[in-house]
């Protein structure tokens, strides 16, 4: 006589034995998922860019307006920070006043043994350079190290 436990155990084994077969359908599903994600835009906010006139003075554009999605700026910051192996960004956000960027908040996870003051300065310099490239401005950058981990901080 087979017990309830044995029936249940057989049922679980039956599903687990078929996991490989079922996973064989995954590659076709995965390509659909990748397509859908690629076409999905994330919620974003518009940020006004500043341009330098011919005299080199940075000002708001008077006639034409250049607006950049905050996602574009955050992507640029993320790519830049990925070049610093001893830290990984946990949070990257623009502080907005209406459409004007008035600050940047960066939260970092740092690798154990990293000189945090040097790291903070390096990140601040990189963020300022990226902001200048993308929005034509320099704003206060608030860098916070939220964790220190042993090994690769990007993991």
């Amino acid at each position: 006589m087979t017990t309830d436990d044995e029936i249940m155990s057989r049922a679980v084994d039956a599903f687990q034995d078929r996991a490989e077969q079922e996973s064989a359908e995954w590659p076709a599903v995965a390509s659909g998922v990748r397509d859908r994600v690629r076409r999905s835009s994330l919620v974003s906010r518009s940020v006004r860019a500043h341009v330098a006139d011919l005299s080199g003075t940075t000002t708001f554009t008077q006639v034409d307006t250049l607006v950049v999605s905050d996602r574009v700026v955050v992507d640029a910051l993320r790519r830049g920070l990925s070049g610093i192996p001893e830290a990984a960004a946990e949070t990257l956000s623009l502080v907005l006043d209406g459409r004007d960027c008035v600050g940047v908040r960066v939260e970092l996870v740092a690798g154990y043994g990293t000189d945090l003051r040097v790291l903070g300065d390096r990140v601040r310099t990189l963020v300022e350079a990226t902001l200048t490239d993308t929005l034509g401005i320099v704003v206060p950058v608030d860098v916070t190290v939220v964790d220190v981990v042993v090994g690769d901080p990007s993991r």
């Binding site: 994330l42 990925s82 990984a88």
Partner: peptide, 9 residues
């Protein structure tokens, strides 16, 4: 995971 949270496709 951290990169994905920051919008890295």
């Amino acid at each position: 995971m951290r990169s994905a949270r920051l919008g890295d496709r």
